[in-house]
């Protein structure tokens, strides 16, 4: 694959939270242009953190994150914001502006970054809302929307400027079966019709494997496997199999690290 075919390259990257907790250790990830890449892993592995690192909101402890050929953490404030105009991100909670209605939320990036006329903005907003099936909800305020609807509005807003790269943070969580089906299809269609590059962070294995072209699985600070969905499903690694099949026992612990149970009980008696 040519180097220019990679929209995002993460090489040898480690990240540590402010509280000192290590989240990633020497992670290498390549996001190919024009494809849907899924990043999967159990809760708490830092999948959202990874998206924030790609968006330049967090600083890695070491290593490099390159987006569209630019090392994102070395860019000036101005250049970083220029680059972000080419990205869209769908947040887990939607992140809609609560003082603006659905229409104004979707129109927000257009008003901020373009000089388009009001009628043009109107047309574009309606088109984006039509894509997510919420054209009729344009006068509603965010507090009148259900969680699933709010996320669809946020998706319409994220694609308002027709970005090159779109990052979805848990897009399928909390969706009813119909919205889930529509969303899965929508992510795929958007990627194809707008020639986007999509990164989906999710732990909904079945839905994600359906639409992803390439999958990375992160467990315990490292990438434990990557490949096409078919290759991932057939991979012999115990960590991968445990995650994909949802098995309680295996190398990936379900319990948060703790002292032995007996010790904790005895401590209670002493107290």
């Amino acid at each position: 694959m040519l180097k220019s075919d990679h929209l995002v390259e993460i090489s040898n990257m480690s990240f540590r939270h402010e509280n000192g907790k290590l989240v990633f250790k020497d992670v290498d990830i390549i996001i190919p242009r024009g494809k849907v890449t899924a990043i999967m892993g159990p809760s708490g592995t830092g999948k959202t953190t990874l998206l924030r690192l790609i968006g330049g909101q967090l600083m890695p402890a070491s290593g490099k994150v390159t987006v569209a050929g630019e090392s994102i953490h070395q860019l000036s404030h101005k250049k970083l914001y220029q680059l972000r105009k080419r990205m869209g991100m769908l947040f887990q909670q939607g992140g809609l502006f609560t003082h603006l209605n659905v229409y104004e939320n979707v129109a927000f990036p257009l008003r901020e970054h373009t000089q388009l006329s009001e009628s043009m903005i109107h047309t574009l907003v309606l088109m984006k809302l039509q894509m997510v099936g919420l054209r009729g909800a344009l006068h509603l305020m965010p507090n009148e929307l259900s969680g699933g609807m709010a996320r669809r509005v946020a998706l319409a807003r994220a694609i308002a400027l027709d970005p090159e790269l779109i990052m979805y943070d848990e897009p399928f969580t909390g969706q009813d079966p119909i919205s889930m089906g529509v969303l899965v299809k929508l992510v795929k269609t958007l990627n194809k019709s707008l020639n986007l590059t999509s990164i989906i962070v999710s732990h909904d294995v079945q839905e994600t494997l359906q639409i992803a072209d390439y999958v990375y699985v992160i467990v315990d600070k490292k990438v434990v496997g990557h490949g096409t969905p078919a290759a991932i499903t057939q991979d012999g690694s115990r960590e991968l199999q445990q995650f994909i099949k949802g098995l309680p026992d295996g190398p990936v612990p379900f319990d948060y690290p703790a002292a032995p149970l007996v010790q904790d009980f005895l401590r209670g008696e002493e107290a």
Binding site: R52, G55, Q57, H77, Y81, Q82, R84, K85, M87, G88, M89, F91, Q92, Q93, G94, G95, L96, F97, T98, F108, P109, E112, H113, A154, R157, L161
Partner: peptide, 18 residues
């Protein structure tokens, strides 16, 4: 504070609005 808690500030940053 609430805008921060509901990811409004983060989403604004990602929309290239400071």
């Amino acid at each position: 504070g609430l805008m921060k808690a509901t990811e409004q500030l983060s989403s604004m940053e990602m929309m290239a609005v400071d």
